[in-house]
Nucleic acid binder design. Structure first.
Lengths: 226, 226
DNA sequence: GTCTATACTTTGATAGAC
DNA sequence: GTCTATCAAAGTATAGAC
């Protein structure tokens, strides 16, 4: 039970921590520096969080939901008869927009997730898994409607797309020539249509490379992999 | 000038450090633990490396070259008349194989690169940039030969592909149903051919989404972005 | 609720014996 | 070249005044 003021202060501390971690990484972010960024002192942080680890774990949960929630909401807001292609494009636009928005929570998340103690990472795993489920569902919808190739593994397709947007955090620079919408459009273009010339028959180019070899096997691969 | 034995020991320390960092992350990897993994003690490490930062910087450089060198070599070993498609597929196979080989240097690299002091990251930047140049060159070759869509940004195409393989480090599990070669084949399949059904005309599905809107603008976008 | 002071611990790094 | 002992710094966390 916290007073409203205390809740606000808690949020300010989380924002400050995200900012410091986004800039310097996990190891270099000290409680003293986080306190300073929040306009207070290291000792005072312990009134709101029992430990640095607890603060970090709260950051992890914010980091995932701050992307997944608006993305899922954007799709839910579409008219009920909307086709899978439009849903996927809508989700991708929102996803890329959020990822490249320079939100400190998102940057902090990807600097933390591979550095935190393994038990914390384990506890957190349900969040990205649920988001992956959402994307796998979209891919399956597309396959059911016939707009996506039915022989593809929906899980791999989803990993393929999201992997690129995560890496984009590393190379995207806000001042550059490409804005998030242009990046989202280009990625969707390549993702749906491929990078090969449309009039080229790939397996005639290099039959020994076994391109499309999976197209022959009737059933799509399982999605047990995470 | 080091004796052969000293060189070997240096390598053993680097391997031990990579292993510990790959498992626990940057912050949790102490000199004592690295020393123990190398069969020696924290103090002894300073005979080979002047500081922990120096050790880490050496790891970064190994991390990139351990992927880029075999990939570039695999393409260089192809017959001179080999087409761009075959070159790209060869490079991708080797790249994915190396990335998913569970090499501690590679895992350690991706756990370090966003955590090290910014001046070290800046010094290191030339390595991934050179590797990116290699891939951009392959994309341009493909466009020149007409196998890749000429209106695509070669830089974005390369980031698209490599981003996915980096993320794969997070989700790939060695015991699973997909081995690196199967993953490489599937990624190449999606990357070249796209995930959309071949017989679907995308811009008729959702014209308002402006899919392929970049195809109309004659010139490919610049690749100034890194 | 917040601050100051400080206890306790860990860790990077050095000194010097061998 | 390697080990032991140890220093000095930094950082998490707590105690207690206000």
């Amino acid at each position: 039970m916290k007073t409203p003021k205390a809740v606000n202060k808690r949020v300010r501390i989380l924002e400050a921590a995200a900012k410091v971690i986004a800039e310097k990484g996990y190891a270099a972010a000290t409680m003293a520096e986080i306190g300073e960024a929040a306009g207070t002192f290291a000792g005072s942080l312990y009134y709101y969080f029992p430990s640095k680890d607890a603060l970090v774990e709260a950051l992890l949960n914010i980091g995932t939901t701050t992307v997944s929630e608006p993305v899922i909401a954007s799709v839910a807001a579409l008219p009920s008869q909307t086709g899978a292609y439009q849903k996927i494009k809508t989700a991708l636009d929102k996803h890329v927009a959020r990822m490249l928005e320079e939100d400190a929570f998102i940057l902090a998340y990807w600097r933390l997730i591979d550095q935190v103690p393994s038990d914390m990472r384990e506890r957190h795993r349900k969040h990205p898994r649920a988001y992956g489920d959402f994307w796998r569902g979209l891919m399956r919808e597309g396959q059911a409607e016939g707009v996506l190739r039915s022989e593809l593994d929906p899980n791999l397709a989803q990993l393929f797309l999201l992997g690129t947007t995560i890496y984009a955090l590393d190379w995207y620079s806000p001042g550059g020539k490409l804005n998030p919408q242009a990046i989202s459009d280009s990625l969707a273009d390549m993702f749906f249509g491929g990078i090969a010339s449309r009039d080229i028959e790939l397996n005639r180019l290099a039959p020994q490379a076994k391109v499309n070899h999976r197209r022959k096997s009737g059933r799509p691969a399982s999605d047990a992999m995470r």
